[in-house]
Write a protein that binds this DNA or RNA. Structure first.
Lengths: 139, 139
DNA sequence: TCAATACTTGAATAACGGTTCATATGAGAG
DNA sequence: CTCTCATATGAACCGTTATTCAAGTATTGA
């Protein structure tokens, strides 16, 4: 717990930034996560912010896949796929299982899985509501 | 965060990319969202991938705030705050209410709100499980 | 009207991030 | 052992993006 002595938020009138609603600012400040948690969270979102990586992770929602299959599904080159998987692995989002010369990757982060599920649900939802976009999904 | 049309995934054996588990690849392919939805989703995650913007949006979870208060809370300059809000506004994530010379921004995207709530819940959860990180929240 | 306030905008700079190419590693086949 | 296959890695390239500075637009008050 933080016993923040934030009754007096008017302590930064000196610089160019004033405060209009001091009370709300204090509340928001007290609820704001710490710097470390914040950058961690931003990093996680950053990992999901690339279409290629997003495809990789969505492909892994159903179970493990080898690198070349991931490359095919994601539309990336095998090198780009490997780089992307390396990044995801570094952040503990995926894990590897080696079998011979193959490498099978799987999704290994419950939080990321929830974010992906939520994103998928949302796209399906908006697809149902706003079907104006034509999506030819080749068989 | 970019809007690229990088979908060229034809199922040919001719090129260097083979398929190992053809069945799984087919299933994953059929479930894969279309290119438009995918870049949209990636863009949304991209908007949340910056600590400054993340702070802005977390601040707006509780209600509207004016630009200078948002600048204070996020730790950004007022110019950087305005640029960030412009970007979020362009993506319909926040909306503005003008009152005199003030501009009050509010969170205006249910999906983003869910993502933020989930992220906050997760940081609080891991904070409870792994409290190894010390968080001195400056008063 | 003049000046101050609250916010916006554009240009410029610097840093970051994703792809590619070439090469490396390591396992299995011959 | 040698060669190929599956993946990994490093360096370079180039577009993207965040920040800053300076100037611009409204709006309010004197």
């Amino acid at each position: 717990m933080k016993a923040s002595s934030s009754n007096q938020v008017t302590d930064l009138e000196s610089c160019s930034t004033r405060v209009v609603n001091a009370e709300r600012v204090a509340v928001v400040r007290s609820r704001m996560p710490g710097d470390g948690d914040l950058t961690d969270t931003a990093d996680v979102f950053g990992l999901l912010s690339d279409p290629g990586r997003l495809r990789l992770l969505l492909a892994l929602l159903e179970g493990e896949l080898c690198v070349c299959d991931l490359a095919v599904v994601s539309g990336l080159s095998e090198s780009a796929t490997s780089h992307a998987l390396r990044l995801l692995r570094a952040h503990r989002v995926v894990s590897v299982r080696r079998a011979g010369r193959m490498a099978y990757y799987r999704l290994d982060d419950a939080h990321v899985r929830m974010l992906l599920d939520l994103a998928v649900a949302h796209t399906e939802h908006t697809q149902a509501i706003h079907p104006e976009r034509d999506e030819p999904q080749q068989a």
